[in-house]
């Protein structure tokens, strides 16, 4: 199978803190790949690594067969036009209307006339159901609408890859349903490849073609939704079922309670 993104034995650390150790994963073309894991594991970092904003200390990251590590800045910027990222906050430009936000990548990267841009923007906004909100500013949008507007902006240049950073975080059930539907629909209609980073288990299991579960600096489980559900790894099961204690301990690493309470007396 063709892979759009391949991560090979990648090690990344920020300062002294090791974040990934020998992580390998593959994102097949035309599929939705989900990356799950507990909060604070550095899932956003993974997307930034794939986007070339961060560079791994070891290992390789390839986009469409081309290594992003040590790539020239010019080439990297050319590649980034083929990928786009939906940030958790939406990251809409607050000083522009929704229309201008969606038109922004078109105006930056193409020499299309304003008429054509207006048409494209209308189509993209129609796809996310926000054509009526074109004249609003980001501050007037609800969280879910802002994310959809940002999604329209992400697909403005018809990218090959779209990365979703926690698309469901902090959404009400309706917005969540809308987003789940959009991710699936856009992926199929535009022949995109999607990477969804999230910790919302149930939503992802319904739409993802392939799932990686990250924890403890490495991949602890992978497979299709079915395989993941039937995984015999305790860690995976704890994550799926949301158990409070398990291989991921309830207590953050600390000396035993007795010792820290009575340590001074003994």
């Amino acid at each position: 199978m063709d892979n759009l993104v391949e991560v090979d034995n990648m090690t990344f650390s920020r300062g002294d803190r090791l974040i990934y150790e020998n992580v390998s994963l593959k994102v097949p073309k035309g599929k939705i790949t989900a990356v799950m894991g507990p909060s604070g594991i550095g899932k956003t970092t993974l997307l930034k690594l794939i986007g070339g904003q961060l560079t791994p200390q070891q290992g390789d990251i390839r986009f469409d067969g081309e290594s992003l590590v040590n790539m020239s800045r010019r080439r990297l910027y050319a590649i980034r036009r083929r990928m786009s990222m939906l940030f958790q906050s939406g990251a809409l430009f607050t000083d522009m209307t929704v229309f201008d936000n969606v038109a922004f990548p078109l105006r930056e990267h193409t020499r299309l006339s304003e008429d054509i841009i207006a048409t494209i923007v209308a189509l993209k906004l129609q796809a996310v159901g926000l054509r009526g909100a074109a004249k609003m500013t980001p501050s007037e949008l609800s969280g879910g609408m802002a994310r959809r507007a940002a999604l329209a902006r992400s697909i403005a240049l018809d990218p090959d890859l779209i990365m979703y950073d926690e698309p469901f975080a902090g959404q009400d059930p309706i917005s969540m349903g809308v987003l789940v539907k959009l991710i699936r629909a856009l992926n199929d209609a535009l022949n995109l490849t999607s990477i969804v980073v999230t910790h919302d288990v149930s939503e992802v299991l319904t739409i993802a073609d392939y799932i990686y579960i990250l924890a403890d600096k490495r991949v602890i489980g992978e497979g299709t939704s079915e395989q993941i559900r039937n995984s015999d790894s305790e860690l995976v099961q704890q994550f799926l079922k949301g158990q409070a204690d398990g291989p991921v301990p309830f207590h953050y690493t600390a000396p035993p309670l007795e010792e820290s309470l009575f340590g001074g007396q003994s």
Partner: peptide, 18 residues
């Protein structure tokens, strides 16, 4: 600073805009 906090700077970079 706010543009950075709301990921607008990152998002520009990902849109291949410096």
């Amino acid at each position: 600073g706010l543009m950075k906090a709301t990921e607008q700077l990152s998002s520009l970079e990902m849109m291949a805009v410096d």
